[in-house]
Design a binder for these strands. Structure first.
Length: 491
RNA sequence: GGCCCGGUGGUCAAGCGGCUAAGACACCGCCCUUUCACGGCGGUAACACGGGUUCGAUUCCCGUCCGGGUCACCA
């Protein structure tokens, strides 16, 4: 038994965004390679010249980097099996196709696009396909047309009878009747290979041992096998992944796509999700560990990932669960790290004003689910919002329009007299005051917090907010609140 | 429509012939509490259906139903 080093590849086409399904495929490919001490290769599949998009390849690099999926070989870093961009390999494919023609496993087809279209239109049943018109053209006819420079494609000659069987590491043994297989195009009229053909040639020449892809390829896999067999090449290990679905408005589900909301890595990070949380979540979409662990770093996944844990049934992408992961990751951050991750959002809400952002981060961290919620949560630090006196009334804290004023008045006096302006001083001062007044803490704290923030729900309590606002601004806001209570009409 | 693949709570899922059928998210209560959260405790909720095989089926087989995928000079 020879022991080949496991090599997987991520082979995206540059479409301009990274769909989460693609990202998960990349992740599993990465993990399968890493968990086996193997290699992970990046290959760009740009054989469709009509769909080229500028800058799309950079998005792929950026996403992989942000996700922490380092490739061992690729267009940007080279390797022993280059080039790693299919358009740069263009000349490699035709000779292989011609070899197949020699072997009688493929043939030239001169049918026009129009003919194929009308074939499809006139078909009784959907999925009728090509009628194999050129499959048995006489040799002389083929040569004559080639000499004339006629436009042609090369098609794979499928067996008309029998069946093809292959093994999939996830789905097991799958058999398909050969009569189901179309004589698929290998080389297009523009000279470029089709995706399917380029895939086989590249995977073989790049020594890929394990082909990982979405289960939408399950039914075309027999065609791949026939190709490998025709060349006499080793067939790779297939790992087909269950699809990621999205829930439609009517409650039905279908392959996750744009209409389901944020579905690309870029969309998700823009929506305030952390890359680590996204990776952790999608790792568990279609795969489960042996135990019940849910929070995994990429390094941990590299240790425990195993193909046997991949499930066969499709899974629905659940934003609620993703949010939970995101919140977990945020809670696990240090205040400093969180302040840094939140920086753009702080900038947006606080502008130039100099608050202690690490302190704000510390009260925000436990209650932030998505980074995008931050601006609205901290805006009151920058500017006291307009608010009405009714906010001072809270049943649970036993505050009323009547006692709130007295509380504020007492609080102002106590806070003015405070020797220092740090958490402990403010806290101890106010708690002592509440005791002195003979009221429960909430009765004092509620109106103070309302006056400081102008809103009923805030990150942090009265003490934290006061500390961050500073003595001067805090007292200003408290006096404003007191005035409001004393002259409700004017406010 | 043909072919292929699936079907455990609303969602993600463990289970791989014998269990009171885990766990997580969401949801609902209660507790904690200077708001909201966090946290703690508890709760509602599932083997699609019908036949077999077996002493015994969520688990194995067949059928039905349901869902998804695929049938391009797209990947």
């Amino acid at each position: 038994m020879e022991h080949k080093k496991v090599r997987t590849r991520f082979a995206p086409s540059p479409t301009g965004f990274m769909h989460v399904g693609n990202l998960r495929t990349a992740l599993y490919e990465y993990l399968i390679a890493r968990s086996a001490g193997g290699e992970f290769v990046l290959r760009i599949e740009d054989t469709d010249q009509e769909r080229k998009i500028d800058g799309a390849v950079d998005i792929i690099y950026k996403t992989l980097r942000a996700a922490g999926l380092r490739h061992d070989e690729g267009p940007d870093i080279g390797g022993d099996y280059g080039p790693y961009v299919q358009s740069e390999r263009k000349n490699m494919y035709l000779p292989y196709a011609q070899e197949l023609v020699q072997k009688g496993q493929a043939y030239y087809c001169f049918c026009s696009k129009e003919r194929l279209d009308s074939l499809r239109e006139n078909a009784d049943e959907p999925g009728a396909g090509y009628d194999r018109h050129c499959r048995d053209l006489p040799q002389e006819e083929v040569e004559r047309l080639l000499e004339q420079g006629a436009s042609y494609v090369i098609r794979q000659k499928m067996p008309l009878t029998g069946s093809t069987t292959f093994e999939d590491a996830v789905y097991g043994t799958i058999t398909v009747d050969n009569s189901e297989l179309q004589d698929q195009i290998l080389i297009k009229a523009d000279g470029f290979p089709t995706y399917n053909f380029a895939n086989v040639i590249d995977d073989h020449t790049m020594n890929i041992t394990t082909v990982v892809r979405g289960s939408e390829y399950l039914s075309s896999t027999p065609k791949y096998n026939l190709l490998y067999e025709a060349f006499g090449w080793d067939i790779p290990t297939y790992v087909h992944l269950p699809l990621i679905m999205g829930k439609n408005d009517d409650g039905s589900i279908s392959k996750l796509s744009k209409r389901h909301g944020a579905t690309s890595f870029e969309d998700l990070t823009a929506a305030g999700f952390l890359p680590e949380a996204i990776i952790n979540y999608i790792a568990l979409l279609g795969w489960a560990p042996k135990d019940n662990q849910e929070i995994f770093s990429l390094q941990e996944l590299e240790q425990v990932f195993d193909i046997s844990g991949i499930s066969k049934s499709p899974s629905v992408f659940d934003y609620d669960k993703l949010e939970w992961f995101n919140a977990e990751y945020i809670k696990a951050m240090t205040d400093e790290a969180f302040a840094q991750a939140a920086a753009p959002y702080f900038d947006k809400a606080l502008g130039e004003q100099s608050f202690d952002r690490v302190k704000i981060a510390s009260i925000l961290r436990q209650r932030t689910v998505r980074l995008t919620e931050i601006p609205e949560k901290v805006a009151f630090f920058a500017a006291l919002p307009a608010y009405g006196c009714e906010l001072f009334v809270n049943k649970k804290s036993k505050t009323t329009l009547e006692n709130a004023g007295a509380m504020l008045k007492a609080a102002i006096e106590a806070m003015e007299a405070l020797p220092g302006w740090d958490f402990d001083s403010i806290h101890d001062g106010l708690i002592a005051l509440a005791q002195e007044l003979g009221v429960k803490n909430g009765t004092l704290m509620w109106p103070v917090r309302i006056a400081l923030s102008g809103q009923t729900v805030t990150p942090g309590g009265a003490v934290e907010i006061a500390e961050i606002l500073g003595r001067e601004e805090s007292l200003r806001r408290l006096r404003l609140g007191l005035e409001k209570l004393q002259h409700p009409a004017e406010s």
